[in-house]
Nucleic acid binder design. Sequence first.
DNA 1: TAGATTGTTAATCGATTAACAATC
DNA 2: TAGATTGTTAATCGATTAACAATC
Lengths: 206, 206
Amino acid sequence: MKKIPLATIQRLLVYYRHLNIIAEGDEEVISSSKLGEAVGVPSTQLRKDLSYFGEFGCKGVGYNINDLKECLAKILTLNKNRDLVLIGAGNLGRALVNFPGFRKMGINIVEVFDNDLDNIGNIIGELTVKNIKDLERIIVDRGIKTAILTTPREGVQSLVDRLVKVGIKAIWNFAPVPLKLPDDVVVYYEDLSSSIVTLMYLLYNT
Amino acid sequence: MKKIPLATIQRLLVYYRHLNIIAEGDEEVISSSKLGEAVGVPSTQLRKDLSYFGEFGCKGVGYNINDLKECLAKILTLNKNRDLVLIGAGNLGRALVNFPGFRKMGINIVEVFDNDLDNIGNIIGELTVKNIKDLERIIVDRGIKTAILTTPREGVQSLVDRLVKVGIKAIWNFAPVPLKLPDDVVVYYEDLSSSIVTLMYLLYNT
DNA sequence: TAGATTGTTAATCGATTAACAATC
DNA sequence: TAGATTGTTAATCGATTAACAATC
């Protein structure tokens, strides 16, 4: 299989969301140009993106809205439930646990950890913040493969080393630290400071 | 001036942060390969990134840590204070207002708005949540140019239309909605659902 | 001077866009 | 059949990487 650009995967969810909205309407079918226009993507790129995964349309007609929606859900495995842990029960961690829409896509944060006694024991949504010293035991017990890091920068690398040791294979990292990881662990960096600084740069340099 | 890739801008902050850390140490100078290795960027890309903005190094020697740090701060205008408003005082909005590190880079969230009477009047950090109907007046009064959107998806476009009308020129949008905007308004989409779904895709497809 | 390292040009790689045959 | 639209190949564009002359 040819390598699929990351940007393509990200666009699939954008397509999915719009299909979800228009699935409520009367139309059964949509063309790549209509859908593309609605989400700000050239129709030719939309078709290219889909072509990595198969043929979903009907020449001369377009795409069946419900079918395409389901196909995208399947590609992105939105139907399967995924259990994750979150580490760092600060403001951002709390926001993510309560984030609307994760559940709907099968993203379930099932444990929250912290190392601060002020936070341990607190309730966030339906979860109780647990002591980070129980991290390993609980991750192994539940067979968890994905961790969200919303901790301060300090100590993130050693935390990650602990996670890797107990079988974590995917990390969503909000700490602005480049991580050293084995090749079989995937990581996604979410760098909010970088985002806003980039936006400010664009504002004053375009 | 040649067009500068967005990815270059984003990497500048990564360099800056590492320089900030090692500025505490004993070394005065660092080579592009050392710095690059520390942050996971090839040295040749680091030099290329810098070359868009000038010559900061010394052949045969490397870069003066403090000088380069200051140059990057200047390029990214981290020294100038920027006033922003945030709209949507939910969990995520609260997290951003309290986000550590924004202040240090001159990013000051100076007003928070919401349309929910349960939220209006609440205290977040040092701010009081204001009624969104005063949005226009306050933005004009304070001459604010940048808005952060942490509202639900519904109604974002009409909110954005209001913002544009009173002179907002940059938008950091956390709502998963493609916005229709004039050409002179810059936007940065922060799509947290897309991030985690992409990570899950990578986990199960690599 | 010899070794190190920059800044930059040229080559490569990968993603986006254009064009169009296939076909509903 | 004529018009519309897909899926895909080829062309373009842009970013990354390699190579190396300049020079500290």
